[in-house]
């Protein structure tokens, strides 16, 4: 339990000092809904400018730490909570288009709770097991495409789409892939976070 509290505090710390907050609607394995909240921390960032016929083109490259919390409900199967962190390589075409491309690799702790009452039978007696579920570790791979539609950013909001593959282990003694597709928005808390 104390480890969970520690993880929670760590997550809260990331959110408090975050430059952005990403909130996304998640579709798990193409048919189960959920939500993801993540708070990217820019680790390193480089911006290059190139003179083109149409004007100056800015390209940014960043390495980002992306703590991430995900919840999804698989109807009548499980409620699933995931806490983890991704290392993301981000490439931004800042001017004029404001497109963002990210590839990420991460590691997550997954806790699922059975979506139904769980019982065990001991010596012929039936006993209820509360908060029953499973624990997994899950490496992940992801790719994301995003866009900031407001060039002058009077309203600091961007949108992105991010397919993310998890490899749950050990799942029935096997490694089982699952796919989350995030459709989300980015709230820019610090205007310097995305020029």
């Amino acid at each position: 339990m104390r480890y969970l509290i520690l993880l929670f505090c760590l997550g809260l710390n990331f959110v408090v000092f975050a430059q952005q907050i990403q909130v996304a609607y998640v579709i798990h394995n193409f048919n189960q809904p959920g939500i993801t909240i993540s708070a990217p921390q820019i680790w390193t960032q480089k911006i290059k400018e190139k003179d083109k016929k149409k004007g100056i083109k800015q390209i940014g490259k960043s390495n980002i730490l992306l703590p991430q919390f995900t919840y999804y409900n698989h109807v009548r199967k499980e409620n699933n909570f995931t806490l983890g962190c991704e290392l993301v390589r981000q490439r931004i075409r800042m001017k004029p288009a404001n497109w963002t491309f990210e590839t990420g690799i991460g590691l997550h702790y997954v806790r699922s709770f059975n979506a139904g009452k769980t019982f065990k039978v001991q010596d012929g007696e039936v006993k209820r097991v509360r908060f029953a579920g499973q624990n997994y570790f899950a490496p992940s791979l992801s790719y994301s495409i995003g866009r900031d539609f407001l060039k002058k950013r009077t309203n600091p909001l961007s949108v992105y789409v991010k397919p993310q593959t998890f490899f749950l282990m050990p799942y029935n003694n096997a490694v089982v892939p699952s796919v989350n597709i995030q459709i989300g928005c980015i709230l820019h808390l610090n205007k310097k976070s995305n020029a």
Binding site: V75, K77, N114, G116, F119, K120, A132, Q134
Partner: peptide
């Protein structure tokens, strides 16, 4: 009818097995 019926999980020797 997702909300109809019962879901009971049986926990036994390392496995949680749903009975719908």
């Amino acid at each position: 009818d997702l909300k109809q019926g019962d879901v009971l999980y049986l926990r036994s020797k390392g496995a949680d097995m749903p009975a719908y």
